[in-house]
Design a protein around this nucleic acid. Structure first.
Lengths: 361, 361
DNA sequence: TTGTAAGCGTTATCAG
DNA sequence: CTGATAACGCTTACAA
């Protein structure tokens, strides 16, 4: 029963008593095949558990049905590590998978061929990927620029790149930051600080922009010492918060431009002998799984992470189908999710039954 | 400067004034090429930014330099969602990437060809992947069985599968569970309960086994009502803990067989008006990022997640190089990481400066 | 409705 | 040392 060699179209043809051309027609659903022939070929194909060779098909069709995914969280933080991207990947995988595409994860190490240094553009050509999704990249990165110049359709998530064949999908970071600040203000705070993300990234810069814009709109004076630059990761949130607490007039509320940093901030506050939200109210950004599971649970700006992935996939699919489709420049709305870290703390008992949407299980 | 068509070996040959055969030799580092010729070809290749076509090479070499990664966390929980697998993926990516392999993520949707229902075995053949890594699968799954029978080298992470060409890499789950229980006992607890993972999975079953074994070794009587079956996710931990707290004689310590469940348990304890670790001590399993960032931070059994990935990659590489290499059956050690959830609570101030290894940043 | 044959971009076998 | 040339498995004119 088990076959050593993978069945080829030739074998299928032989066993069905027709030519390979006919088999190909059947497999690709061409109209001009007699019903009998079609049935017979299909039957044999089933028996053989036949699958066409992707390599052969790619070679002749000049397309691979594969999308390359470039992940780069930069700064020496291991790729893939940030929970945000993981969730985006889920959305991407589902949408693109449904469209008949597979995902090739671009590793940062050497390419398959010993021939040259790794280069995303080169590897994209090597595998003849039909499209590219890049996440967490710096648009100024020469590697990325190279990708943009190549004629491969590309969609960036969370980075504003533009090119003839490349667009982006991003969350409304400014709007989200404004929501966060307004919420904090509505909770009665006036001394509202921020721990930013990497300012070299679009989300990092935009969230700071939104913070400033909303302060101004609310008539709350902006102060330089209330801005701590972080990098989206836990430790920078911890450090930023410590610095803020050391101020002569520490803030009573902090907007951390990422949930991981917010978690770090909570740690700093508690170590300082203070409590969240009693002494310091906190709002994060992203709504990663952690946010709902923390104690206290974290008020945050929810990004539709799988939505970003799905939207990126969708856009890519469109660009693949129609060569002249305009690259996307989509901004997805975000929403404020109020949890414990920004509320006046009620009695322990009263907290019961809240935030149980947690894992979606 | 920009070229529309991807450069082929033929073009390279033409421009270098040699035959394609010679170019191929140069590119593949054959010895029998004159230094001058080699230099010239390499020079032109650089100018053209030439990359060989993976498809063509796969076709003729009958190998793709691609490893398929099958992710399946089952139970309707979205794939990829569990942080554990994400970290394994990092290790895998690095090791395999260094070995010159790329990773193809097997999406759960339709295959590239409209031809048939998705089947991992079929897709593996379709892409002619050289090897397979499967994670979070049920070894009894017919799909998985099919993969095992195929002659493609396969390494499973966290599932004990065996086959002529397939092995596994797993953590010492029993040992880890024993460590957890012993630690709890050493903290002075006698009423030690467990919230298990899915018992249909190897880790789920083994951790329960370890729990029982250690109780017995310690002379602590086992009681059925102290065993709550969970599924590794937050909500089941929450529910399990509630059930335990509702017992006439609730436990004073709980071993949650996964960190996510431990987080759920913390939530339940606090909602009950009790505190961790004062009223209930808690130990988790995995040491996902969340564990160190929670409040209180979570004592847990650390799995070497990237190590699992790297080891799996390593083993696969070995199997690919030598056809007769024995499939791995590796068990990786785990370690107890003591944090706040299992300690007698000291004053707030005293907690300062602990657990700051958090993100590795 | 079906078959023949020419590629797709490589590698590998033979001759030279 | 180098060059023709035959595969590899498939799609697609072009013929029949």
């Amino acid at each position: 029963m088990r076959r050593l060699q993978i069945a080829t179209i030739r074998e299928l043809a032989r066993l069905s008593g027709v030519s390979v051309a006919t088999v190909s027609r059947v497999l690709n659903d061409y109209a001009d095949v007699s019903p009998t022939t079609r049935a017979r070929v299909l039957e044999v194909a089933r028996e053989l558990d036949y699958t066409p060779s992707a390599a052969a098909r790619t070679l002749v069709m000049q397309r691979s049905q594969v999308i390359g995914v470039v992940l780069q969280t930069g700064e020496g933080h291991p790729d893939l590590q940030h929970p945000f991207f993981q969730e985006v990947l889920v959305g991407l995988k589902h949408r693109l998978g449904a469209g008949g595409y597979d995902l090739l994860l671009f590793a940062t190490e050497n390419p398959g061929n010993g021939f040259s240094e790794h280069s995303f553009a080169r590897r994209a050509r090597h595998h003849r990927v039909d499209g590219l999704v890049v996440m967490g990249v710096d648009p100024a990165d020469p590697e990325v620029q190279k990708l943009l110049r190549s004629s491969i359709p590309l969609v960036a998530v969370d980075a504003e790149v533009v090119g003839r064949r490349s667009g982006y999908v991003i969350s409304d970071n400014q709007g989200g930051a404004r929501l966060a600040v307004r919420h904090l203000r509505e909770c009665g705070h006036e001394r509202i600080a921020i721990v930013t993300g990497m300012l070299s990234t679009r989300p990092g810069a935009d969230r700071l922009l939104g913070y400033r814009a909303e302060l101004e709109a609310l008539g709350v004076p902006y102060r330089d010492d209330y801005v701590q630059e972080g990098d989206f990761y836990f430790d920078s949130g911890y450090r930023g918060m410590r610095a803020l607490l050391a101020l002569p007039e520490p803030p009573t509320a902090v907007f951390a431009a990422g949930d991981l940093m917010a978690a770090g901030a909570v740690r700093a506050v508690e170590e300082h002998g203070l409590s969240v939200p009693d002494d310091v109210a906190l709002v994060g950004f992203d709504d990663i799984q952690l946010a709902a599971m923390m104690q206290p649970s974290l008020t945050t700006i929810r990004q539709d992470k799988t939505g970003l992935g799905a939207t990126a996939g969708e856009a890519l699919l469109r660009m693949l189908e129609q060569v002249d489709a305009a690259p996307p420049t989509t901004s997805l709305p975000v929403e404020l999710v109020v949890r414990e870290s920004s509320r006046v703390r009620s009695s322990r008992r009263a907290r019961k039954q809240r935030d149980l949407e947690v894992t979606g299980a």
